[in-house]
Structures are given as C-alpha cells and as structure tokens.
C-alpha cells in the first residue's frame, strides 16, 4: 500500500503558475511531486521536514494532534493569536564529534474559529504526540434550551 501525502491545492497552483511555465502546464511538476512524495514516504519528520497534524472536533472542543517525536516539552511552543494556532517545535541535535549543536525550528499554523478563548487552550504531550484542546467559542456550541409548554 502506498499513500501519497496530501498537499494543499492552493500551494500547488502557485508553484505551477509561478515557476513551471512549461509545455505540460505543470504536469511535470506534478509528476515530480508524486515521485518525491512516493520516495520520501508520507511522514517525513526528519530534522528539516515539517510535522503531520490531525484535526478533530467534538461538541465542545476542537483538537489538534501533532506528531513531534523526540522534541522535548520545553522546545514546543503553542500560541494562539487571533484566529490562528501556531505550533512551533525546535529540534536540537546535540554536538557530536566535530559537529556543533544544531537547532531546527519548524512550525505549523492552523486556523481556529473566531472567538476561541485563548486562555482556556490546553496542551498535552505524550509518546511524542502533542494534543492541543481548544474550547469552541460560546456562540458555536450547540445550545439546548428546554422550553416549557404550558
């Protein structure tokens, strides 16, 4: 079985218009993309790569789960600014032999509903997976009102 990593349609459109004005109208770029994603696998969490993110929701919360294996808790930064949640992970490779210590930061940004109470956002990190819980804004929660019938 082979899965091909999802890439955002918008960013693909940009690349095929901006950089690949070829006879094939971006088809070669598309093939390259497929070949690259097939050879690197679909979850490149290597030092330079980005990390995969899952989104879930239930009635009261939105959940963001990010796979960040090997990143220490103190090197994970979760920020909510306005309608955006940004997760920044800094991966540090300790100095080994002649190589100096390296530090690579990667981040992902997710749009969250307007009015998300930023002070009630919580995050937990377990087994290399970060789970961020964002309570939904009051207005977005389904409200049940019992109406008395007289």
């Amino acid at each position: 079985m082979r899965l091909i990593r999802y890439s955002y349609p918008a960013s693909r459109a940009v690349s095929s218009f901006g950089f690949n004005r070829s006879l094939f109208g971006g088809l070669d770029a598309e093939i390259n993309r497929l070949l690259t994603s097939a050879s690197t696998g679909f979850e490149t969490t290597a030092a330079t790569g980005s990390f995969p993110v899952d989104l879930y929701q239930d009635e009261a919360n939105t959940f963001v789960r990010a796979e960040l294996p090997g990143v220490a808790r103190e090197n994970i930064d979760v920020e909510v600014i306005g309608e955006e949640l940004t997760i920044t992970a800094t991966r540090k490779t300790p100095a080994a032999g002649e190589q100096a210590e390296t530090s690579t930061a990667t981040s992902r940004t997710v749009t969250v509903p307007e009015g998300t109470p930023a002070d009630k956002v919580t995050a937990a990190y377990e087994n290399g997976v970060l789970t961020v819980t964002l309570p939904k804004p009051e207005a977005a929660k389904p409200r049940k009102v019992n109406v008395q019938i007289s």
Binding site: R5, E43, D54
Partner: peptide
C-alpha cells in the same frame, strides 16, 4: 471526536 482533517 469527529475527524476533520487527517495527515496521519
């Protein structure tokens, strides 16, 4: 939990 978007 309903999944909205998955990459894993």
């Amino acid at each position: 939990w309903k999944s909205v978007y998955r990459e894993t």
